[in-house]
Write a protein that binds this DNA or RNA. Structure first.
Lengths: 151, 151
DNA sequence: GATAAATAAGACTAAAAAAATCCTATTTAT
DNA sequence: ATAAATAGGATTTTTTTAGTCTTATTTATC
C-alpha cells in the first residue's frame, strides 16, 4: 500500500523544478543532489516524466531538465501516475476478471471510493501551490493559528 | 500502490463470515473455497485476524472460524490493517527520518491528507452494511434507481 | 482414553516487483 | 573535433509478496 520510491522521487524532482520557476533548465546532477535522488535512477524517472509531457529534456552539453508547463498546470496525480500508471488500490478494481463476483461485491465499491478520493486529493495539489507553500504550508486549509500573545 | 492479496483475502473471509451472521462457526475449507482463498494461506491470514480480535478460532474437530463481534462493529480499515499494518502511502509519512525535509514539505501534507481519506473511507465500511448490501449495493449512497416500467 | 478431524505455528521456497546500476550510444554547445 | 551532457536498454541486487510444507496441538466423538 505504498507509493514507490520512483514516484516519490518524481514528485521531488518536479517540485524542485517548480521552485526554480517555469522553463528554467536545471542539470540532472543538481536535481539529483538537491532532491536526494540517485542520479542514475533519475534518468529513468525523467524519461517517464518527459513522455507524459510534464518535463522537457534538453540533451547535450548544457543540457538538463525543465518543466514543460507552468507549475500551476501540473499536479501530483499526473506526476505519480506518469511513473506508476493509473492508481488503483486492488486487483478487483483493476482486473474484474480476477474476481468473478466483483460487480456483486459491496467491498469493491468501497475500494473504488477510496481510490477516487486518493486520486482527487493528489489531483488537487498543483505544483505552483506546493512550491509556494514551501516550508510547512499545505494546499489544504491550514490549522487556525494561535492567538497573538504579544501586542 | 496496491493492497496485498492477503488483505483482499482477509476482507473476503470476514465478509463471508459476516454473511453467515455473528458467532456462526465455519470451517476453514468452506471459507477458503467460497471466498476463493488458497486454503493454506488462509491459516496465516486467520492468525492475524484473530490476533486483532476480529475473529475467533476454534481448534480441534468441528473447529473453524467465527466473527468475534457483531459485523456492525467490524470495518474494512481494521481488517486491512490487521494484515498489512497501518496504511501509509509513502515513506515520508511513515519514517520522517527518511526525509529530513519532511516537516518543510508541502507534498508531505498532501500525502497525509490522501492517507487520511483512504483510511476514513475504509473505516466507514462496516461489515453489516457490506453483508446486507450483498449484490451490487454500497455503503455509499446508491445511484438513483431507474423508474419502474411495469405496474 | 484412543482416534480422527480440525487448526496452529513457523520454517521454507518461489515468483514478482522495486530499486538501482552499468554500459554503449546519441546529442549539442563551444 | 571535443567535451559535456542525456538517452535507452540490459543487467543486477534487494525486498516483498504469495504461497507451501511440515510438525505440533487441540478437541469432539466413540
Amino acid at each position: 500500500m505504498k507509493i514507490t520510491m520512483a514516484a516519490e522521487y518524481a514528485v521531488r524532482c518536479v517540485l524542485y523544478l517548480a521552485q526554480q520557476g517555469s522553463d528554467v533548465l536545471v542539470n540532472r546532477q543538481e536535481i539529483a543532489s538537491q532532491a536526494r535522488i540517485p542520479d542514475s535512477f533519475l534518468t529513468k524517472i525523467a524519461q517517464d516524466l518527459a513522455r507524459a509531457g510534464i518535463i522537457t529534456i534538453k540533451q547535450g552539453a548544457k543540457g538538463g531538465y525543465a518543466l514543460h508547463r507552468p507549475p500551476r498546470q501540473v499536479n501530483m496525480l499526473e506526476v505519480v501516475e506518469a511513473i506508476i500508471g493509473e492508481i488503483s488500490l486492488n486487483e478487483c478494481v483493476t482486473k474484474p476478471a480476477a474476481c468473478p463476483a466483483s460487480p456483486n461485491c459491496a467491498a469493491n465499491l468501497v475500494w473504488q471510493e477510496a481510490r477516487r478520493r486518493v486520486r482527487d486529493t493528489l489531483r488537487a495539489a498543483d505544483f505552483e501551490s506546493l512550491a509556494q507553500a514551501g516550508a510547512c504550508v499545505s494546499p489544504f486549509p491550514p490549522p487556525p493559528s494561535p492567538p497573538e500573545t504579544r501586542p
